[in-house]
Amino acid sequence: MFDGGKIITGLIIFLIIITFPVWYNAVNGQAGERPEIEIATKDTPGKNECVLPADVMRTDHMDLVMQWRDEVVRHDDRTFKTENGREFTKSLTHTCLDCHSNKDAFCDQCHNYVGVDPYCWDCHIVPQDFEKGVK
């Protein structure tokens, strides 16, 4: 007796499952599309440059935000000094979102793209949404 039929059926099922990314991408046709983010900044002096260089912010912003939270909440240390001596208040809603006032077109673009669901917004509100009366 041979079980070739069953084994080949199993093999085909395996190949369909393992090639899932290929046909999922083919059906959705969105692969390779880099998210387009709008980097909103304020043109007022001292506000057109981020607290850290852009490439550092791109990879390490979560560490900074977390560090700020701990320093503010545990040590009441609310001022952040940049390398070139500018001073910022350590605040997500008042500092980060003051310049980057477009969460949908800024934060969410990359977060959604790589499937990151930060829990910042479990507690924080988006001031711009609040002003517009959106909950």
Binding site: F20, N25, N28, Q30, A31, E33, V114, G115, D117
Partner: peptide, 28 residues
Amino acid sequence: HFKYFVQPTPKWVMLLQDVDSFFQIGLP
């Protein structure tokens, strides 16, 4: 890791990483 292979990120991947990060320790 399928979230790095396909676009858009499927719901089940999000669910899986939510469960996997259940204890919410640190960031990431």
